[in-house]
Amino acid sequence: MEFDLIARHFTRATPGAVLGVGDDCALLAPTPGMQLAVSSDMLLEGRHFSPQDSPAGLGHKSLAVNLSDLAAMGATPRWATLAIALPEANDAWLTAFARGFFRMADQHGIELVGGDTTRGPLTISITVMGEVPPGEALRRDGARPGDDVWVSGVIGSAAMALAYRQGRLFMEQVDAARVLPALYLPTPRVALGIALRGVASSAIDISDGLLGDLGHILQRSQRGARLEFAALPTLPVVQAYLHEKVARDCVLAGGDDYELCFTAPPGKHDAVRAAAGNAGVAVTRIGHITAEPGLAVVAPDGQPLPFERTGYDHFAA
């Protein structure tokens, strides 16, 4: 049954691989002179998604969150493997999941070349592989004092959608409808990551929360940062709820945005704008890197804005 399931739902032509699905291993031939960027992510039912979530949306999101890691490194997507545990072999569910997965794969030119299936609690684990020229990968350790801090797109929408779904934030239904797509159908900024090669001094994707993920850059770079809360890019519907603490927390530490947070020297302002224009993505300068360690957020009145949480804790209860 396992091999029939794989053949029906996850076997497609892989012209970019020497050998794809169907053997003990895939055989891959990276482009000569390129470095491989490899990342893995796991999604667990009840922890990262609900049993009621759309399987097509889950297929989309499970690959999108992995592609976001490649985007943060400026890597071009090439191949992926999928390991999935299933409570049962439900053909209708798998057909929808594969549709969402391969729609995202086709958008970014990534091929599924292997994986595994077994019976168990619904768990999805994906490994992605991309390519980047030597010395051009975007890393977390390159931020320097005076660098501008930028983010792509808008932030906070997915976390507000989750807060609404969990009953922690009460929103009008018409407002909730504007933020829910960010939670279920994130957009990995692959083209922007590639365009930022040679421009950004450091980068990370915002998966666990702006403050927490920027904190990883600061830790690796041994620097600090000062952010302007009023500059953080959010949807108008999000701004309408920022008088509530839970909404501010969603913007600063909510996560699930899968936007890029990156730094660049002030002299590369025009290059950043050009890269964003080429990628078709809006970017916003939200602060700057400081020599002194520590992360500060400044309110519109110029006073420090207190925050209790910086991001999602994968081991919290």
Rank of each mutant, 00 (worst) to 15 (best):
D4M: 06
L5A: 10
H9Q: 08
F10W: 07
G16V: 01
V18A: 14
G20A: 07
G20Q: 04
V21F: 07
D24A: 15
C25Y: 14
L28K: 12
A29I: 01
P30D: 09
P30S: 11
L36F: 02
L36T: 10
V38R: 15
S40T: 15
M42V: 15
M42N: 09
L43Y: 09
L43V: 03
E45D: 02
S50C: 11
P51A: 09
Q52M: 13
A56C: 06
G57Q: 14
L58Q: 05
H60G: 00
H60E: 09
L63A: 01
A64N: 03
G74M: 00
G74K: 01
A75P: 10
T76K: 13
W79M: 01
A80W: 03
T81Q: 14
T81S: 15
L82G: 11
I84Q: 15
L86K: 11
L86Q: 11
E88Q: 15
A89G: 04
D91Y: 11
W93C: 08
T95Y: 02
A98D: 08
Q107F: 02
I110F: 05
E111A: 06
L112K: 05
V113I: 11
V113R: 10
T117W: 12
T117E: 11
T118E: 14
R119S: 10
G120W: 12
P121E: 13
I124F: 11
I124E: 11
S125I: 02
I126G: 07
I126F: 08
P134R: 04
R139C: 12
D141T: 05
P145W: 06
D147Y: 01
D147K: 05
V151Y: 04
V151E: 02
V151R: 02
S152I: 00
S152H: 01
G153L: 05
I155V: 15
G156Q: 03
S157H: 04
S157G: 04
F170E: 14
F170A: 15
A176S: 12
A176C: 08
R178D: 07
V190D: 05
A191R: 15
L192W: 02
G193E: 07
A195T: 03
L196T: 05
G198F: 05
G198K: 12
S201Q: 03
D208C: 08
H216F: 10
Q219V: 03
Q219T: 13
S221A: 08
R223F: 01
R223D: 02
A225N: 06
A225D: 05
R226A: 06
L227C: 03
A231E: 03
A231Q: 07
L232G: 01
P233Q: 09
T234P: 01
P236L: 00
V237W: 02
V237Q: 09
Y241N: 00
H243M: 04
V246H: 10
R248Y: 00
D249L: 04
D249P: 00
V251D: 03
Y258G: 01
C261V: 14
F262P: 06
K268H: 15
A274C: 10
V281D: 10
T284H: 14
R285A: 12
I286G: 00
G287R: 01
A291I: 01
P293F: 05
P293Q: 08
L295A: 02
A296L: 12
G302A: 06
Q303C: 04
Q303A: 15
P304V: 00
G311P: 09
F315N: 11
A316E: 12
A317M: 12
